[in-house]
Design a protein around this nucleic acid. Structure first.
Lengths: 135, 135
DNA sequence: GCAGTTATATCGGAATACGATATAGTCAAT
DNA sequence: ATTGACTATATCGTATTCCGATATAACTGC
């Protein structure tokens, strides 16, 4: 036996888990599209909102979305063009760009998040069951 | 109150869940890349393997990966070029292409799947906790 | 105030899913 | 058998977006 518990891999369980993930991601993508957003734009808005008190910078967005900082910069460009975020140089460190949601994106995100929470509540039993099956 | 349980959305929990998902997907992407595969190629191999007895067609791959059939066709093209799957017309219905893994891709997938199972076992507590938090 | 580092930005290039369309095979009903 | 509707797969051009390489500006310690 290698490192795994029983040696044999449960391909069907893995495949089902990935299928469930894909379904969720496609669900998410479609909801975002209904509001004129791409999946990444939605994720960025959520990451910014979810930061609560923290100062949100390009670097922060990059870290939360697990993309390179220069990709986050481009992503924020697009959001700014859409009027969904504002960028302002940080007074503390003028290299940093402080990012904030606009009224419009806050409203948008609230709707999207409600839908997503609901969907995840719906998917939870299946996801946890599939994860359990992998043990 | 709307449809949700308490009306207010837990943005931080949603954001954390998406961050965890992204981390897993990036993990997966990197492992696949170490074996010369893209994420989608790996997913396709897994879907084919996870089908067990079932006859695997382009349509089946499309359905499991939640992509359009013509995108699945392109994806299988690339896998065929890499020598990771074979395509043969079905005797039953000669429109269909029956797809099979090669010896090489089976070995490849076994390694990848072991790593992934392990990682998912590691992530399970976090994922289930985050899902629970959304209730 | 210089060297090294950090934060963000710009540009060209690569990958891949998609829409529109094409081709080939199947099936039902005549 | 032939037609017509439908299904499975394939091809082509396009758009999106991430990345690597590189640039710029600002911060830090000495």
């Amino acid at each position: 036996m290698s490192g795994g518990s029983s040696g044999a891999v449960d391909y069907a369980a893995l495949a089902q888990f990935r299928h469930a993930l894909r379904q969720f991601l496609v669900f998410s993508e479609r909801r975002a599209a209904e509001h004129g957003l791409t999946a990444q734009q939605h994720q960025a808005l959520l990451a910014i909102r979810g930061a609560d008190a923290r100062q949100v910078t390009i670097g922060f967005v990059a870290e939360r979305l697990v993309i390179k900082p220069h990709s986050a910069s481009e992503l924020v460009d697009r959001l700014e063009t859409l009027g969904l975020v504002s960028r302002a140089p940080s007074p503390r460190d003028r290299r940093q760009a402080l990012i904030e949601l606009t009224t419009r994106s806050r409203a948008l995100l609230e709707q999207l998040s409600a839908t997503h929470s609901e969907e995840l509540r719906r998917l939870r039993p299946m996801l946890t069951a599939l994860l359990t099956q992998l043990e």
